[in-house]
Amino acid sequence: MTAAATPMLELRHLSKIYGVDEAKVYALNDVNLSVQKGEFIAVMGPSGSGKSSAMNILGCLDTPTSGQYLLFGTDVTGLDRDQRALLRRHFLGFIFQGFNLLARTTALENVELPLIYQGIPAEERRERSMDALIKVGLQGRADHRPSELSGGQQQRVAIARAIVTKPGLILADEPTGNLDSARGREIMELLVQLNREEGLSVLMVTHEPDMADYANRIVTFVDGKIQSDKVRDRHAA
């Protein structure tokens, strides 16, 4: 596969419209974006700028009103709910601002969750989940429940859950939003490390310029359009 020839994902004239007629709101208005494998992109913009809408569509959680979304060169725009679920299961990993771990469930079981839906046998599931927890520095915390972990640790569990399926792309929605700046930087360093060492592509929504500095490309949304798209040297990398 020639990475340069086929972008990992590509948005073509993508629009998302809420409401009808007079009440029409363009959440996304003719967006074009192309992401290569291995990129670490920060998506910035004020609230209501369309960055969340874009993330939902990129994460196959939502469908665009018009335009095309190509994932690994394949048009996924017209897929139904179950087909999109399968795309998420095999190709995408999610990290949320609020961690979104299952309460009353151990760290290990949280990480195993996507593998259960992949139908991986219990033994292999356990091994791979332990490996993922080790990668995020949580060996020894496998049996802890989210309530027994700090915010930073919870986000690490979430990252382990996102990478355990070895997805092509990690979608992170304000991953440091609920953390203090020191913990936030630790999480960012972990993401950078995974991006470099594991070749994971990362698309991260953030409104904190400090955090965006860790990315090697910054895309800024304003009023449903991409205002700027800058490739840059990574901060402190």
Partner: peptide, 16 residues
């Protein structure tokens, strides 16, 4: 509801 959302995000289908 949130748990269901998490399960769907990591790839649970409707039938699952």
């Amino acid at each position: 509801t949130r748990e269901i959302g998490i399960r769907m995000a990591v790839g649970a289908t409707e039938s699952q």
